[in-house]
């Protein structure tokens, strides 16, 4: 009884709850097998030599050469190739982790000392919890209000630092229902250890039910549209506006030629920078007259504005 209880306390790996988890574990176990073998070989050799060649033992001690080029080459080159293999495999997973599939459902995450604020496109907000439907690819667009945090989902084997002043993204697809921990993995101040939460992976039906339950807020894009008007953006960025400013229809995801000759892709980061630091990247053919909205919009409002501007673009999969 006691024995079984104690053994039950030992966990040898976290839950595998995402499409990526199994792949990471496979690489991990492979590395474990390779390095374990090498380590065991070294250890056995050392122990064997220690036992056999102890000072007073009568054994063959005919000197061996001081050095051997073939041997040195072998144990330089062979590990190098093994290492290159490890690199390649690891890099493949990393590229996969950093390239979100195009059909992802987007969810905005804002970190602040010491909580996670989540808003779904449909308008639903939650704190320290993240409801997602099982099987659907989720793309998190994350930023921080203060210091660097890190959105870590051990059961999904992903993590990404959440930086103030810019957006970072990561994606995952839950493969089984249940609740899994969220940790902040980047030290962020006194209550860093309290910045934890739950991802709740639900069946699509439960998820829809949850979305429509409780107090409903307008969809993010709608809130963004209201803001767009109340902040006066529509005064310039409209078809028949008195001031000549770029139209924002179909902006998201398209290339924007800049005044200095560069061309940038209009992603979340570009839109964010254009609202907060409009003077940095002036679209070609327009005057640098837009005022900065820094200190006038909160991070939440920014995400709503971005969500609205993205909704003006047909290419976005909503």
């Amino acid at each position: 009884m006691v024995g079984a209880y104690i053994i039950a306390q030992f966990q040898f790996g976290p839950d595998q709850a995402s499409s990526l988890a199994g792949q990471v574990d496979a690489l991990f176990l492979t590395l474990l097998a390779i390095t374990g073998t090498i380590l065991a070989l070294v250890a056995v050799t050392i122990l064997y030599c220690l036992a056999r060649y102890r000072r007073n033992a009568q054994v063959d001690r005919t000197p061996i050469p001081d050095s051997s080029l073939p041997l040195e080459t072998a144990w330089t080159v062979i590990p190098m190739f093994i290492f290159l293999g490890m690199f390649g495999w690891g890099a493949t997973l990393y590229f996969k982790k950093n390239q979100s599939p195009s059909n992802a459902t987007e969810i905005y995450v804002i970190g602040k000392q010491w909580m996670w604020k989540v808003q779904h496109l449909q308008g639903k907000r939650e704190i320290n919890e993240l409801h997602v439907p099982v099987g659907r690819t989720i793309r998190l667009i994350m930023t921080s209000q203060d210091v660097i945090h890190d959105f870590f989902l051990p059961a999904f084997r992903v993590k990404q630092d959440v930086l103030p002043g810019t957006y970072t993204t990561q994606w995952f697809a839950g493969t089984k229902t249940g609740s899994f921990p969220i940790f902040c993995a980047q030290y962020c101040g006194t209550y860093h250890a309290n910045m934890i939460g739950q991802v709740i992976v639900q069946t699509p039906q439960d998820y829809e039910e949850w979305l429509s339950s409780g107090t409903t807020e307008p969809a993010m894009a709608l809130s963004g549209a209201n803001l767009f008007r109340s902040l006066g953006c529509s005064g310039c960025h409209a078809v028949n506006a008195s001031v000549r400013a770029p139209l924002l229809n179909n902006l998201y995801g398209s290339p924007v030629p800049l005044q200095n000759g560069q061309v940038v892709t209009a992603d979340e980061r570009y839109i964010r920078d254009s609202i907060l630091q409009p003077e940095l990247q002036i679209a070609a053919g327009y005057d640098p007259i837009m005022p900065s909205f820094k200190d006038r919009v909160s991070e939440e409002e920014l995400t709503q504005l971005i969500s609205y501007i993205k909704s003006l673009s047909k290419s976005t999969d909503r």
Partner: peptide, 17 residues
Amino acid sequence: MTGLFLAALGIDVHVHD
């Protein structure tokens, strides 16, 4: 040897920090 795990990008994402 465990450093090799950390240098592998895909694993580091999970075990970093």
